[in-house]
Amino acid sequence: MHAQYTVTALTEKENSSFLRLIAAMGRHRIEIESYACSTSPSGATYKHVLTVRARPEGMRRAVKQIGGYVGVLGICYRSLEENVNSEKAG
């Protein structure tokens, strides 16, 4: 039942953004296969890109939860079938 997804999150450039992101993935039993983070040209934002394996329900819940965190500016995920879902932060 696990599918592969790509998750992209934009956060404030704060160390705790890594912690919260990864902790939330763990809580929802999402298996992280790769993780990359880069700083935006302005230097104020992190862009996190993860490939993960998860159940669709776990993925949906995690993204919704992370989207509500203070410091998360946006998060979206895309399954291999290219279905794009996004959650606005806030």
Binding site: E14, N15, S16, L19, R20, A23, V70, G71
Partner: peptide
Amino acid sequence: VISVSAPLTKWNH
């Protein structure tokens, strides 16, 4: 304490 409390707080700094 930042790492320890991160998943439990609304925000920490």
